[in-house]
Design a protein around this nucleic acid. Structure first.
Lengths: 135, 135
DNA sequence: CAAACCTACAACCATTTGGTTGTAACTTAG
DNA sequence: CTAAGTTACAACCAAATGGTTGTAGGTTTG
């Protein structure tokens, strides 16, 4: 429901918020954060619980969690004096579908390469024409 | 052949090179680079071709392509005085499977949450015991 | 050959990132 | 109430990032 993956293969791209995509991929590009995702997926944990399991400072883990939270990959739930971090499967699913969608879009032409030799040349020609415009 | 995705659902994690995962997700976390992926998937293009389509400088695009290349998301093929950038569907497929794998691993416990209430408590207890160690 | 084109790369700059320590506020336990 | 535990956040720092311009080296083209 939150998602809205396109179903047309020829669409320019998914109607995703590009900022959100930036945040998600950026959040996943750090191995400590990926590791945190793994830990909180087994059981929700407080920031302190998490911080205790890494070499870095409490504040550093706090920032990592914040990055994950801004990407909606985890949520925080207050429980007394601590906040429990839990992962958000919905965003995870969404991210997976998103990348699968990118894969489909970005490789569709490749799969049809044999059928479009003529068009390929045309594309090249059009490109060369644009080039002459010299902007 | 390059890949090595795990097939066991209960494995701790995929035997992927964590550095490579960092590179791939980081490369995908920038919308200009994602856009470049889209363009080169339609037809391989020289760096100049690409640069002409963006506001930023040639060198900036050169750097973006370099980031994509280090993540193995694109390859470069020399053609006379220019180098043609083409996307690498294999890495794309690999990345998609990787994220799907993460999704599966990171959400498996959630799906079984009803069945492991006892274990969940045990996990909590073990955690509290570790906490007493006070490192 | 000379001019134009394409690419690589260095040097530089502003901003972001990932890390630190320190301080303040709130919650629970004694 | 006091002390300990947990979190939030500010201030600071080094390194990485994304951008710039400039220079140099290959490749075509006229």
């Amino acid at each position: 429901m939150v998602v809205g993956l396109p179903t047309k293969p020829d669409a320019a791209g998914p109607e995703f918020d590009e900022d959100q995509v930036d945040l998600i991929f950026h959040a996943l590009s750090d191995r400590t954060r990926r590791d945190i995702m793994g830990k909180v997926s087994q059981s929700e944990q407080s920031i302190s619980d998490l911080a205790r399991q890494y070499e870095v400072s409490f504040a550093a883990i706090q920032k990592h969690v914040s990055v994950l939270e801004k990407a909606s990959l985890v949520t925080k739930r207050v429980d007394g004096r601590q906040k429990l971090v839990q992962n958000n499967p919905e965003t995870l699913r969404r991210a997976t579908e998103l990348l699968a969608e990118y894969e489909r879009i970005w490789t569709q032409r490749i799969n049809a390469i044999g059928q479009i030799l003529g068009e390929e040349r045309q594309v090249g020609d059009r490109k060369r024409a644009e080039e002459r415009k010299r902007r």
